[in-house]
Design a protein around this nucleic acid. Structure first.
Length: 903
RNA sequence: GGGUCGCUAGCUCAGUUGGCUAGAGCAUCUCGUUUACACCGAGAGGGUCGGGGGUUCGAGUCCCUCGCGACCCACCA
């Protein structure tokens, strides 16, 4: 391959990915087999949160892949047998909604088909749509084990879920109960608590008078005129009046003491209901009296339980009033009914007031419809036991969280968790393996059986009928780490628990909590050792992305435009665990620029390598020989150290030091999931250090073996984050072999510390010279000045390098006769040989500089004058301050000397 | 009602256990046709770290308090 002038990601990415995949490097080296001996230390496992099988990847997936794949590639380079298991989600409800919409477009409804027909149709639909997301994962560079891709409806998933269900069934943790559930009338299904969205909304609180028809006997005297009396209740849902079975007041409420135990006539009906005392009624709220509708309100349901009240369903699953509401109202929508009820109450003079209030209203998270609390027989899991065990493992510190505070948040959630409704009335999902004795919806006897492909089964001569409901997808996906790693009871599995679970912070409760509960329940172990939660990717202004706002960023467009690596680098930068953070194309552009920079660094190095093998080698060697003649390499390499190259100048020791520090930092960052910092470190070492200083210095002193070795090291270190460009370079270089993806992570380099330090000192000379030169450029544009030096061996040894880096005409000794402008350097005697009039022009700058250094000096002196500081601060710090004072004092003296020369 | 997080340069964010003159990317300004790169190079400007108080020799960092913003949980009729 030949190096083009700039890196074109599109020309490399597809082929490179195909080659990785083809050669099998994504597969774990160690597989789970009968004879496998566990060497957990060598294994590293991550499972992908499964994207919707028939969907497209969004920006959140892009972040997930960037994070997970970086971890996986980093650990692969570190020699681990990595297993990154990809997944695809049948996404029960999500997909069902999409399918039902498509069905409706054809003018059909779900009611025209049987459950099995619908299931088959959605299966077909998903197969037709499938595949995009998998291509997109490849485009993002996910180095996952494709042959092990797990679909959430795969046979092994279903059978594992059934085993758990059976275990829970036998453990008495599953029960069927008629309880109030969150029901979406649009989608005709129940939801778990976690799936409903509460939104504060404007509403109205009406006050309705209920006439008393009797009072308790012992109070007959005090309420002799009770027939004229009434009790005014407060309600936000007058349409549910037909379901009222009591009016509740607080037992401590003096206003209503004499009414407790009495009866009222329910307005608009002929029914008579009791007045009861219950803590649920708050004295301060509204009138203090509340109507109780056990079949349509979660609180009232509980009140009803406590008082043994009847549950009357007045709203049906279609969201319309039932016959129980009376023939005048049956069939009306709740909204229409409310209107009529209010009108009729008004007409009868029973409406006593109305005021605006703000209250939380439950909505379907998908369609926004108001959730109707509905009385339904459903399967529930008694989660107390699950939660308790999970909390115990969490409190023992078996899972490390990033960010750490999420552990507390999770425990807090688990402690208050209520029983979990796992029945869903949608056909697309895993059928619940339960059969009832009768054909009607509810039956006294249920049995567990996994023959869910049959509607009717026979057991011991008795017929049983399948429950038509499916599992909540979170019930099956809570098994994800277990099923993806093929965990089996009694069998060693070095990939379970996972090393880390990476997913969005938004599904901490819905998914992470359930995986932990289920993992502990099924395997007795936590399912993962660490959890990394990423926040939401917001748009560039910090706004949530949404279709309606039109600010959605498509990751695939960015990949096409700037390359996969650029996208990955861009999305990782400036991002930390658990935080919702803004994202813009700018950061992707910066990533693209880095890729191009590295590409050109490599192109340049390849050029030097080629040169050293060709005819022009003579010229190169001459320069090098010339350079070496000038260099007195004072810093000896550490005794006993063996180097794969020889260090000929200080810059080489310096870059070895910097690259080693970089390597250490990346290891530290990755151990702590500090992706952004790792990328930042690499960015700075490649650009600000390697390219700006080392490569520049290598234009004078060529050390080809070192150039090769350091470039390889950089490629390896950047590979986890920018896999394509690094592999493309690796493939394009003339001397490298094999695939970069399976190379060995670099080791520390040996360097001479004194030499490295000297180079840094020289860098200061260069920077100062450049700064002064730009400041002078106005008056003396285009002229090339000479740099003079006095008693300065470091400068003396590096004339060529200084000339190259500063762009001066030459660097020569002033031979004891200093002239021109002295640079404001503490440890060096260097002059810029400009005429006196230019030095005079520099006078203002000099004065400013003196003032500024003076201020710094004052600050240091002030610190030293504080006896407490000298006493209590660490000695090293105090010494530093002292040295600083000495340096700055000397510097000021010099600058003042300059000023005197000018005058 | 309970809880979490954030407020640092024009923008988006770093700043790990308190310690040199608070950093980066992008943006802005000046200069630059040095044969790896204009997806570049050299330089510059820009912050009383949300307000107030406290602890400390020393606070962006720890504590208290107030303000603003975001999010999560919760059955207030």
């Amino acid at each position: 391959m030949k190096f083009t002038k700039s890196y074109e990601p599109g020309e490399f990415e597809p082929q490179i990915y195909a080659e990785w995949e083809k050669t099998g490097v994504f597969q774990p080296r160690k597989i789970v087999a009968e004879s496998y001996e566990a060497e957990t230390q060598d294994c590293y496992s991550v499972v992908m949160p499964p994207p919707n099988a028939n969907g497209n990847l969004h920006i959140g997936h892009g972040l997930t892949i960037a994070l997970e794949d970086s971890l996986v590639r980093y650990n692969r380079l570190r020699g681990k047998s990595t297993w990154y298991v990809p997944g695809a989600d049948h996404a029960g409800f999500e997909t069902w909604v999409v399918y039902e919409r498509a069905l409706e477009k054809q003018g059909r409804t779900r009611f025209e088909y049987s459950r099995d027909e619908l299931y088959a149709r959605v299966w077909q639909f998903v197969q037709e749509q499938r595949g995009n997301m998998e291509l997109q994962l490849r485009a993002l560079g996910a180095s996952c084990a494709w042959p092990d891709l797990t679909f959430t409806l795969d046979e092994n998933v279903v059978s594992r879920v059934y085993q758990t269900f059976e275990k829970m069934w036998n453990d008495g943790m599953i029960y069927r109960g008629e309880k109030l559930v969150n029901f979406c009338p649009k989608h005709q299904t129940a939801f778990a608590d976690i799936e409903v969205e509460h939104k504060d909304e404007e509403g109205k609180l009406w006050e309705v008078a209920y006439q008393l028809v009797s009072v308790p006997e012992d109070m007959i005297d005090s309420a002799s005129d009770f027939t004229k009396r009434e009790i005014v209740v407060s309600t936000t849902r007058p349409e549910t009046i037909f379901g009222d079975t009591a009016v509740a007041v607080n037992p401590a409420d003096e206003r209503y003491q004499d009414m407790i135990g009495g009866l009222v006539k329910l307005p608009l009906t002929e029914r008579v209901i009791p007045i009861i005392a219950d803590e649920h009624a708050e004295m301060e709220y509204g009138t203090g009296a509340v109507k109780i509708t056990p079949a349509h309100d979660f609180d009232d349901f509980e009140v009803g339980e406590r008082h043994g009240l009847e549950r009357i369903r007045v709203i049906g699953e279609d969201g319309k009033m039932t016959a129980a509401a009376g023939e005048k109202y049956a069939g009306l929508t709740t909204e229409e009914c409310r209107k009529q009820v209010l009108e009729n109450l008004e007409a009868q003079g029973l409406l006593r007031g109305e005021k605006k209030i703000t209250h939380a209203v439950a909505h379907c998270y998908k369609c926004g419809a108001v959730i109707e609390p509905m009385l339904k027989a459903q399967w529930f899991i008694d989660v107390k036991r699950l939660a308790k065990a999970a909390i115990e493992h969490l409190e023992r510190g078996e899972i490390k969280f990033h960010p750490a505070n999420k552990k507390k948040v999770l425990i807090n959630y688990l402690e208050g968790l209520k029983d979990w409704n796992i029945s869903r009335q949608i056909p697309w999902g895993i059928p619940i393996p339960a059969f009832r004795q009768t054909e009607t919806q509810d039956a006294p006897e249920w049995i567990f059986d996994i023959r869910t492909n049959l509607q009717k089964i026979e057991v011991g001569g008795v017929h049983y009928y399948r429950d038509e409901d499916t599992f909540d997808t979170w019930f099956s996906s809570s098994h994800w780490p277990v099923v993806c790693t093929n965990w089996l009871p009694g069998k060693e599995n070095p990939y379970y628990p996972l090393n880390v679970m990476e997913t969005g912070a938004d599904i901490l409760f819905a998914w992470v909590a359930r995986m932990i509960m289920m993992g502990v329940y099924v395997t007795g172990e936590v399912p993962f050792r660490e959890v990394y939660l990423h926040g939401l990717v917001l748009d560039e202004h910090g706004q949530k992305m949404s279709k309606s706002k039109g600010n959605v960023i498509n990751p695939m467009e960015l990949v096409t435009k700037y390359g996969s690596d650029a996208f990955r680098l861009g999305i990782l930068r400036g991002r930390s665990a658990g935080m919702n953070q803004a994202f813009s194309e700018n950061s992707v552009m910066a990533g693209r620029n880095l890729c191009n920079k590295l590409w050109n660094i490599s192109r340049f190095i390849q050029g030097m390598v080629d040169e050293s093998h060709s005819g022009s080698v003579v010229a190169a060697e001459m320069i090098q020989a010339e350079a070496e003649a000038e260099v007195v390499n004072e810093g000896a390499v550490q005794a006993g150290a063996e180097l794969p190259y020889s260090t000929d100048n200080m810059g080489e020791d310096w870059i070895c030091r910097e690259l080693t520090a970089c390597k250490d930092e990346i290891e530290d960052d990755m151990a702590n999931y500090r992706f952004s910092e790792a990328v930042e470190t690499l960015y700075s070492v490649i650009w600000d250090k390697y390219a700006d200083w080392f490569i520049e210095s290598q234009k004078i002193y060529k050390n080809v073996p070192l150039l090769k070795m350091t470039l390889e090291m950089i490629l390896k270190m950047l590979h986890p984050f920018a896999p394509f460009v690094t592999e493309a370079i690796w493939q394009s270089l003339s001397w490298t072999e094999g695939l970069l993806i399976v190379q060995k992570w670099p080791t520390r380099l040996v360097f001479d510390a004194v030499s490295a330090q000297n180079f840094e000192s020289l860098m200061v000379v260069v920077s100062e010279t450049r700064r002064v030169l730009t400041e002078l450029s106005g008056a003396s544009k285009g002229k090339k000045w000479t740099l003079l030096y006095g008693d300065d061996s470091l400068v003396d040894d590096n004339q060529l390098l200084l000339t190259k880096l500063t762009g001066v005409a030459s660097v020569i000794s002033c031979e004891g006769q200093p002239r021109g402008l002295r640079l404001a350097l503490v440890n060096h005697e260097v002059y810029l040989d400009v005429p006196a009039e230019i030095v005079a022009e520099y006078r203002d700058n000099l004065e400013q500089r003196i003032l500024s250094v003076g201020r710094e000096l004052d600050a240091l002196n002030l610190r030293m004058m504080n006896p407490n500081y000298v006493d209590k601060a660490p000695a090293a710090l105090v010494k530093q301050t002292r040295d600083g004072i000495a340096e700055k004092t000397a510097l000021i003296e010099r600058l003042k000397g300059e000023l005197r020369v000018i005058e």
